[in-house]
């Protein structure tokens, strides 16, 4: 347990001792700011019954942030250590492979959630300037963040897996970006096949991340979505663990 905490702290700190952490946060902040402007312009033109969070999600910057930030956050995790050789010093200390994988994943998740904090700021600014207290639905904000957290878990574990596969950060980023985009595009494949009602359609319906996140943004927590994301996250972490262990039997 001690090793896990010590490692997580170091991983998290390493985002902030180099430029990467600040660049990622600045980029995310920039895009969140954009969506905020978009949102304010929309609100000025016409009244809407939708919760603020759904409006936010409707600006589509959400996916841009998620799909680009995830590879950049995770690419370093294993690839850099393998490249510089510190992976060897790490693996010859009495820590287990599982601790290493979980610590790196936890640090990436923490940084990722930190990156989304400015969104809360935007929401509170809106609340400050409106007279209607109903604008701010705490429940919807909570479920939006739950959605961000669950999707983040999937994308971070995907990134961990990609990073464990290679010594090159660039390749790690490209692999996780490609896998992420593929998962994302599955949502639209469903629309293409909408006339079809066979099992393919049913499977695709369960994988439409765009719809899932819309539910979260509306304030709906569907356990099927939660189970899907949690199990996919665990699956990719398991794969990462297997890759890390593979040095034993390669």
């Amino acid at each position: 347990m001690q090793a896990y905490i010590v490692l997580t702290r170091r991983e998290l700190a390493s985002f902030f001792v180099s430029m990467t952490g600040y660049v990622i946060i600045a980029g995310a902040l920039f895009l969140i700011g954009f969506s905020f402007v978009d949102l304010v312009v929309k609100l000025q033109s016409e009244p809407t019954p939708m919760p603020i969070t759904e409006l936010f999600y409707g600006t589509a910057y959400f996916w841009l942030i998620l799909l680009t930030a995830a590879p950049v956050i995770t690419m370093r995790l294993f690839a850099l250590e393998k490249f510089s050789g510190t992976f060897e010093t790490l693996m010859t200390t009495p820590v287990s492979d599982l601790q290493v994988v979980l610590a790196k994943f936890t640090a990436a998740m923490m940084f990722y959630m930190l990156m989304w904090l400015p969104l809360l700021g935007c929401i509170f600014i809106l609340r400050h300037y409106t007279t209607d207290p109903g604008v701010l639905d705490i429940g919807a904000i909570g479920t939006t963040y739950l959605g961000i957290f669950l999707l983040g878990g999937l994308f971070m574990s995907l990134g961990c897996f990609a990073s464990a596969l290679t010594r090159s950060q660039i390749i790690a980023a490209m692999v996780s970006f490609t896998m992420g985009i593929t998962l994302f595009l599955l949502s639209f494949l469903g629309n293409q096949l909408s006339t079809d009602t066979g099992w393919q359609m049913q499977v695709l319906n369960h994988l439409t991340m765009v719809e899932h996140m819309l539910d979260f943004a509306r304030g709906i927590v569907d356990t099927r979505h939660v189970v899907l994301y949690v199990s996919l996250t665990i699956w990719f972490l398991f794969l990462t663990l297997r890759v890390v262990e593979s040095r034993r039997w390669k």
Binding site: V6, E88, L90, T92
Partner: peptide, 25 residues
């Protein structure tokens, strides 16, 4: 100490040694 002595270049000496000591339990 492996070949080429890999270290975390962004850390400070004392911080690194403390991190390693804690990591070793």
């Amino acid at each position: 100490m492996p070949e080429n002595n890999p270290l975390h270049p962004e850390m400070r000496v004392r911080e690194y040694l403390k991190f390693r000591a804690r990591l070793k339990g």
